[in-house]
Nucleic acid binder design. Structure first.
Lengths: 105, 105
DNA sequence: CAGGTTGGTAAGCCATGACTTACAGTAAGT
DNA sequence: ACTTACTGTAAGTCATGGCTTACCAACCTG
């Protein structure tokens, strides 16, 4: 159930912004903080959450730390979504009509 | 940016459980509440959030209200995920190597 | 029509978590 | 080595939101 962690990670607006800021290219913490209305430590904390959700990865580069998007978390989410397009769900639309008719159970 | 609302909607564990409980079949509020460790009003409030995120739909049925999964919210999410598998992202892995070498901007 | 279901809403409480400032550590430059 | 840049961590504050109880409305049944 790793997808649950992905949901909570991307639920916060600031964190989602940070995540999407990494789409164009990998960035350092300072660069990310400059693009956000919050302090640098806040960004650091957000990155920690994103990292534990397998959404970003770090590449220590001398003094700095280069953050970039990691596919694992997204893949986790994609698999979860795919399961919703299964036969079980497609065949399940009839259930509504059935229960509307019989109005029981 | 409707996908943001989907993230926040599915971020809460209880709400995610309720949502997944609807996967097998449409259910009433009472049925959903019976399967959760929270009160019925709490479930009602969660359903309200899920509904505004286009994740569930309601079918008033006499006294009861039959909730079922709605695809719109999931589709929103799927489109968002798809955009991450674009060329922009695939071509972007090189950026890491580039910056590791040159260690600047 | 009276009583019993079913479910949405209001008000209020309380915990989670997002943010800030302050501090510590590590690497680079002079 | 000393100073400067960059980042992570700690501690504490405060708002958001999830939960409960109480209440109210709609519908169905006898």
């Amino acid at each position: 159930m790793a997808y649950a962690e992905v949901f909570t990670a991307l639920a916060d607006p600031t964190r989602l912004h940070i995540f999407e800021a990494l789409r164009e290219q990998p960035k350092t913490v300072g660069e990310l903080a400059a693009g956000q209305p919050v302090s640098r430590p806040a960004v650091s904390q957000h990155l920690k959450v994103l990292q534990s959700a397998s959404l970003v990865s770090v590449e220590p580069q001398g003094n700095r730390r280069l953050y970039s998007i990691k596919r694992d978390g997204l893949e986790e989410l994609r698999l979860y979504l795919e399961s919703f397009w299964s036969d079980a769900l497609t065949a399940y639309g009839a259930e509504i009509a059935r229960r509307v008719k019989n109005k029981n159970v």
